[in-house]
């Protein structure tokens, strides 16, 4: 466990840079992490997904991609266009939620 400074705020992150506490998240942090993930600008479509994920996170875990597409009406193809290569993981990272993971 380490801390890092993102957009002028010190937050706790894991080894891969995922926020440990969703409560420490801000929109400014999201913009900064999105840039690191190769998304230069967050459009309204990006924000729709990010906000839906934050509202529907259970116990700090991001919803699965299937839940996101069902909940937002955004197709899986569009999700890959918005958040290329592993959209579920990227959204979780940007939205300050836990990384999608298995049991080991």
């Amino acid at each position: 466990m380490t801390t890092r400074m993102i957009s002028g705020k010190t937050v706790q992150v894991n080894e891969e840079g995922f926020l440990l506490s969703p409560d420490e998240w801000t929109k400014e942090i999201a913009i900064e992490i999105a840039k690191e993930e190769g998304i230069p600008e967050l459009t309204p479509a990006h924000w729709k997904v990010i906000e839906w994920c934050r509202q529907n996170a259970t116990n700090g875990r991001s919803p699965t991609l299937r839940q996101i597409t069902a909940g937002t009406g955004i197709s899986t193809k569009e999700m890959f266009a918005l958040f290329p290569k592993g959209p579920a993981k990227k959204v979780a990272h940007i939205a300050g939620l836990g990384k999608p993971e298995g049991c080991v």
């Binding site: 894991n14 290569k85 592993g86 993981k89 990384k99 993971e101 298995g102 049991c103 080991v104």
Partner: peptide, 30 residues
């Protein structure tokens, strides 16, 4: 998922297991 093992400690202890057995992993494949 991003790999066969996604939990940091399990990944550290078991990460080489699949390689030793000659099992290739294709991650982030939806």
């Amino acid at each position: 998922l991003s790999g066969a093992f996604t939990k940091p400690i399990a990944a550290k202890h078991l990460g080489s297991l699949l390689e030793e057995k000659g099992i290739q992993v294709v991650p982030d494949f939806l």
